[in-house]
Design a protein around this nucleic acid. Structure first.
Lengths: 223, 223, 223, 223
DNA sequence: AATGAATGAGCTTTCATTCAT
DNA sequence: GATGAATGAAAGCTCATTCAT
């Protein structure tokens, strides 16, 4: 992701160029064709690179796919970094809605690829290992959100009766599920608007029961 | 043309036998190897059937896969049929927990296959069409659960503030997500117990905010 | 071809029925699809007969094909039988034209099948043997025509300079060639009219040089 | 991308080598086994090339066959180019005999393959299109020969009564027919000598009627 | 490093033939 | 005899991977 100033005027090291071109071409193809139908030839052609070059940068096709998965999975958590700053700001609901919007964008992007890994258990296992080693996975997002919720509990803006981990998990589940269904039933072209509305309602449903005891109604009224 | 009752004691028409053997062998293989890695050869061998037989019973490989998907998807909704009978019985939470247990078993079984359809957009499209024609999909489950919730609202056991559709959706999302993550991160062998606990907590989190206003604590105490 | 009065009211022996149905169905299919694309299943379906029945009547598929070839090849020479009767009648040219018309109809029918035998040298060899054993082949047609020509030479209606065998061969070659080209270049739907005109001209070209010395012009004028 | 002059002494670009090897191996196999029995595996083995290589050079098997057909069909018309130069030389009969000799060699080579195309109507259609686009076909040969005949008519060496087109067509029909029958009835190993004699006689039969009026020894005079 | 022609194992699918009913 | 489900060898074709240039 860092972009070192290249020595050559016109580009970074061609090697890096190629590697990135391969990854982004693969990403593009995967989003339109499905893991099982993308060939190394397609990729090389789309990246405008020789087929053999793929094997300079990646041990095999699976490794390239792995890189793409990593690339896609990598860029989400950053979105969450601003959440802690929102503690006590706006309304809890508004803050959570904003987070879910990002989460959804992320889930919407990565769902087809991540799901299609199930088509190749071996590849899935490799991804699993990789993610375990780097402790990636939804746990991180969950913990950011639940930390936020705990902080709001401290401020009395969320009932202490709520289980932050569970609520966070529910929210992310809703987001991922909505994204997945959109792809599954509408080929990813289904009403994004509808998806967002669903998510807002999910947040509200959760917040309804999370507001400070005597505030329950008000929270709802604010919205 | 006549289909004489088989002379063999132990089986129905061999044709049906073969068809079923093919489907169940495929089901088995798919769950252990992934859609993209299962060949017709594997299937025939596992079903102890000639490779050509596959094409007597199914137009092509995709149609067989489709049958398996249908087979897996088909047996869930029945589980929900008893839910309406529970209205007013036990506690709301207990009833929902029980439903989610079935849902989870179903989701746990079908998630890998359904997800792996994303690896083959063409096949996915066929499944999509099939499901649309038969109006399968999560909408049905959601509506059963939300109908139940509405009934409980009438009885005053669930706060009228709750949006039944949304709550039902959240519950199913939680179930599917838990199942999926279990497969993704633990190869399906991860702690089923842990998954069930998570789901119970999810139900509680939702019920916390859904109990009748002055009962919130009690609901929790009961558990 | 003989049709013995069947014992049963409604049909001849079903076995014969089947055999004929198979042959004529095959004939029909071959004329529209090409030897290499006609499967035993197609044949059985077209003949409304079980696939296995084919093997009661014929040792294998090739034998059925062989029968069809025989059937097609068989019905021509009869057409020529009336030629000897024409000696001295009408004009030579008219008589030859009439013969060529029949020859062409025959050639037009059998050319695609006979030619497609070249796609399977083994089958071709079997046909060859069969034809040799029965001394089938163009030799017979040639000899009928050349006998006719010789007779006309006796009558002075054809110049003695003509080589009857050669002329007969040229005529049949023209007929077969015209039929073949029609199929090859126009899929058999090419102008039949044009083909007939070509053949008439071929006959004339040959007769022009064959007429008795002082009759050459007249022959042509008559036409 | 650059195509360096091969380091190997003995060959052109290996790619060209392969393509040619494939074509000539296919040609060889086709002449001994028949279109319907030659598999891509056979071809690859005979060409000492990997099976996959076939698909680098040709879109599919049919395209390779097409190339072979083109290759066979391509080299004839050149033979005719010298014919115009013979106008007025030698005797008409000698000139025509010489042409027919070449034609026969050509027909003898290509007949089995061209005929076997009838076994696969789809392939036949492709060949038909290809030939139409390039205006190949017997028309060209016919027109060269008939142009020659017309020139000889001008010189008075051929009677003006002859229809050059028709005579040319008859000659080529005789040639093709002779070749075809040789393959059909004698597997291509039948007496070539006999075939040549037949053709010479055919030419004579035609020329008998084509000689100039005052030269033709009667037969010709009359016409 | 970069190329892309070449490889060949392995895929889905077809089809002549068999055989229990 | 008649059936058609079942067989399995073999077909055409694909594609991840290698390697000479």
């Amino acid at each position: 992701m860092a972009k070192p100033a290249g020595a050559r005027v016109n580009s970074r090291s061609p090697a890096l160029d190629q590697k990135e071109k391969l990854i982004s071409a693969t990403e593009r193809l995967l989003s339109s064709q499905g893991l099982g139908c993308v060939t190394t030839r397609d990729i090389a052609r789309a990246a405008k690179v020789a087929e053999g070059a793929l094997y300079h940068h990646f041990g095999d096709k699976a490794e390239l796919i792995l890189s793409v998965v990593l690339h896609q999975l990598g860029d989400f958590p950053d979105v969450l970094q601003s959440l802690p700053l929102q503690v006590g700001q706006n309304t809890v609901q508004k803050n959570l809605e904003r987070v879910l919007e990002s989460a959804f964008a992320f889930h919407f992007r990565m769902a087809p690829l991540v799901c299609s890994l199930f088509a190749d258990q071996e590849l899935l296992a490799r991804v699993r290992n990789m993610m375990n080693e780097r402790s990636m996975g939804p746990a991180r997002s969950t913990s950011v959100i639940s930390a936020y919720l705990r902080a709001e509990q401290q401020l009395g803006r969320v009932t202490p009766a709520a289980e932050p981990e569970t609520v966070a998990g529910l929210m992310l589940a809703a987001s991922f599920n909505t994204a997945l269904c959109d792809h599954f039933f509408h080929g990813g072209s289904g009403g994004q608007a509808k998806a967002h509305r669903q998510l807002r309602e999910a947040v509200r449903a959760l917040v309804v029961g999370l507001g400070p005891k005597d505030e329950g109604k008000r929270t709802r009224e604010k919205r």
